[in-house]
């Protein structure tokens, strides 16, 4: 099994993908910890596994709802009251381009 190497670059990539800014101290701390955690977790290599990937433990498949008009959610104000910045009916976010 190929060993997983965790270095500064990996931590930075992960932080970027996870949209989670990290301080320099946090980066160092997590780098050291992740190395240790994954080393400990590599004990799972001892288990003989089949090909079956178990995502869900219940047998429900294709659960469909009735093909009828659903009841609309009526507490729109309750949702809107949680918005942080709003102009007219829109949520204000920073520019994306």
């Amino acid at each position: 099994m190929v060993e997983t190497i965790i270095d500064d670059k990996i931590i930075e990539r992960v932080s970027d993908i996870a949209r989670l800014k990290l301080s320099e101290t946090e980066k160092e701390k997590f780098e050291e910890e992740f190395e240790r955690i994954l080393k400990e977790f590599s004990i799972i290599d001892e288990i003989k596994v089949g090909e079956n990937e178990l995502y869900y433990v219940v047998g429900n498949v294709n659960v469909l709802r009735k093909d009828s008009e659903s009841k609309p959610f009526n507490n729109i104000k309750g949702i809107r009251d949680n918005f942080n910045r709003m102009e007219d009916e829109y949520i204000v976010v920073p520019k994306n381009l």
Binding site: T4, L20, E26, F34, V49
Partner: peptide, 29 residues
Amino acid sequence: KRRILLGTFITMEEFRDRWYTKALKARSA
């Protein structure tokens, strides 16, 4: 933060089979 980062890491394309998929198979056991 630790859990978000580790979860992001082990589901990245190059590490997914090594960690996440392996864990799902072991879950069957």
